[in-house]
């Protein structure tokens, strides 16, 4: 029962979405199913918040490895939640007098929420994203080894793209006139050619495989052949 009801719901929702695509009378059913998911996902925010608090409070109380970070997490979570929901430091909205600061925008410029966003959240996000530059360098150093013919081709392509995507591309092959029949050999043009032709072709091939795989997995789920995601059957 515990497995069958969710499975049945998944099957019904899946088939409704398929039917809604082909049969005009059922278009609104498909929209309804999408809205149900949105509602579920919204409620899940509360579930997520509760779980976050529970996990980290437990870590703190157990003094588990890295529990100091859990304290920071809990404080940050509660601070952002209270400041955002409570609209602390927000000015009243002149359009809706009588509602005090509650009618104001929670993230208006100069408010504590705005300050936290600009001074804490934004730099933190940018920092993590910027780490990619370092990891790309170390991964490239390790991975691009001319072990065989395919690896050599990959390596050569990497050189073309790395140089062609900067001013070096123009600078290095500047001696080939733009108007000549050989302009395709200019580094920046080779880069565009590689990206447009080889890369796009490869991407499309992968996407075709992915699309077929998606169809097959979805069908297995709709037919109840694969139930491992629900925790029953082999997986």
């Amino acid at each position: 029962m515990k497995r069958n009801v969710p499975l049945l719901l998944a099957i019904i929702a899946g088939f409704v979405m398929i039917v809604a695509f082909f049969i005009p009378y059922t278009v609104s059913w498909g929209e309804d199913v999408s809205i149900w998911f949105d509602i579920l996902a919204s409620i899940a925010f509360i579930l997520g918040g509760g779980n976050l608090l529970k996990v980290h409070l437990k870590k703190v109380s157990d003094q588990a490895k890295g529990w100091g970070y859990s304290i920071i997490t809990i404080i940050s979570f509660l601070a952002m939640l209270i400041i955002g929901l409570g609209k602390l430091g927000v000015n009243p909205n002149p359009q809706f007098p009588g509602h005090g600061h509650w009618a104001g925008q929670y993230n208006e410029i100069g408010s504590p929420f705005y300050w936290l966003f600009e001074s804490v959240f934004k730099p933190l996000q940018a920092t993590i994203f910027a780490m990619l530059a370092f990891y790309v360098a170390s991964a490239a150093f390790r991975a691009f080894r001319a072990k065989n013919m395919e690896a050599i081709l990959l390596l050569a392509t990497a050189f073309f793209i790395l140089l062609g995507r900067t001013a070096a591309g123009v600078f290095l092959t500047d001696f080939i006139p733009e108007e000549s029949g050989y302009s395709g050999l200019r580094l920046e043009n080779i880069t565009v050619f590689i990206m447009d032709v080889f890369n796009t072709a490869g991407h499309r091939a992968i996407m075709i495989g992915v699309a077929l795989g998606t169809a097959s997995v979805s069908l297995k789920i709709l037919l109840g052949v694969d139930r491992s995601y629900l925790g029953s059957g082999e997986g």
Binding site: I206, G213, S228, G233, E234
Partner: peptide, 18 residues
């Protein structure tokens, strides 16, 4: 890669239907 990932469940289970 791509479809191999989707084939994983069938491959690992070894079930003929999958």
């Amino acid at each position: 890669i791509g479809e191999e990932f989707f084939a994983a469940s069938a491959y690992l289970s070894g079930e003929p239907e999958q």
